[in-house]
């Protein structure tokens, strides 16, 4: 009796939440699982196809699991697949992509973090104007800037080289990364900066000793953003490099879409999966940070 009195009388009113929810929930989970299957299907098909032999692919079912698992397509994709006359597989593209990726990521993040720091703590006349132009520039279709950049790279002798492509990635990564760092540095309490100024610290000292250590999480976000973005780039790779320095995505496309020879679908899928592996590993390893990175990249850019 005492219990019923302490409970508020309004509680039993209305539909019972549990019963009403369960019907809706079946529908909800059903939908989500169906949609998940659509999203997972290509990954599954890639893995399964790359582990089959060609005879099995010709007979059968793309969705079926391999009857006999073979890693030969992987080996072939990595070291023997042909693009035109070169038959040294995707390993060359992988090497190029790594050699493009590391300097591009380091350079673009170094420049953008310093830009962001200068923009939030050392404003000068016109700094906001340049920044606004930079952000508007992020919306300009790359096609309008492709050819002038060809001319510029030719002038400084970097056309077709990995160095040239690194420069292009640095330039086009700058708007979004600068925004990312600028907003982050702007959120750091100004008193900290002022105190350092009073103690006589200069531009670089404050950057390296105070700002950079505080911004480590945003550096990680920027690295994730840049690694996936640069690894997945196709357009700049195809235009600013030559066959010997093609990044992995370009080489992959040339291998799979080449018109000569018999199509080896298992090798193609192994090559595709190999190319997708780097961003996938980063995605699954970084979890929430990846979401934060793309949300920053997407919403702001």
């Amino acid at each position: 009796m005492a219990d019923t009195i302490t409970n508020t009388p309004t509680e039993p009113h209305g539909p019972k939440p549990k019963k009403a929810m369960s019907r809706a929930n079946i529908f909800l989970y059903g939908t989500l699982i169906m949609v998940s299957l659509y999203y997972l299907l290509p990954l599954y098909v890639m893995i399964v196809t790359s582990l089959k032999g060609m005879p099995e692919i010709r007979m059968g079912n793309v969705f079926g699991p391999p009857m006999e698992i073979t890693f030969e397509p992987w080996v072939k994709a990595w070291s023997e697949a042909c693009t035109g006359i070169n038959c040294d597989g995707l390993s060359r593209g992988f090497g190029n992509s790594v050699r493009i990726l590391i300097p591009s990521v380091l350079l673009s993040i170094a420049i953008a973090s310093i830009n962001g720091y200068a923009l939030s703590n050392w404003k000068f006349r016109g700094s906001e104007t340049f920044f606004t132009i930079l952000i508007i520039g992020a919306f300009i279709p790359y096609q309008t800037m492709l050819y002038p950049i060809v001319i510029m790279l030719r002038e400084i002798g970097l056309m077709g080289s990995i160095g040239g492509l690194v420069l292009v990635h640095t330039v086009f990564g700058m708007p979004i990364l600068t925004l990312l760092f600028r907003n982050y540095f702007a959120s750091i309490p100004e008193e900290l900066f002022k105190a350092a100024r009073v103690d006589g610290a200069g531009f670089w000292q404050i950057y390296f000793q105070i700002m950079m250590p505080m911004a480590l999480p945003i550096f990680v976000v920027a690295i994730i953003l840049q690694v996936t973005g640069i690894w997945n780039d196709f357009l700049f790779g195809v235009i600013y490099t030559k066959p010997a320095t093609y990044p992995m995505t370009v080489q992959l496309n040339n291998i799979v879409n080449s018109v000569q020879g018999v199509k080896e679908y298992n090798v193609n899928m192994a090559a595709t999966l190999l190319t997708g592996l780097v961003p996938l590993v980063i995605y699954f390893a970084s979890g929430k940070l990846f979401v934060r990175g793309i949300a920053a990249g997407a919403v702001k850019g």
């Binding site: 780039d233 595709t272 961003p279 996938l280």
Partner: peptide
């Protein structure tokens, strides 16, 4: 996860 993959893939 598909968003992590390139358009080529």
């Amino acid at each position: 996860y598909p968003f992590a993959l390139s358009f080529v893939v």
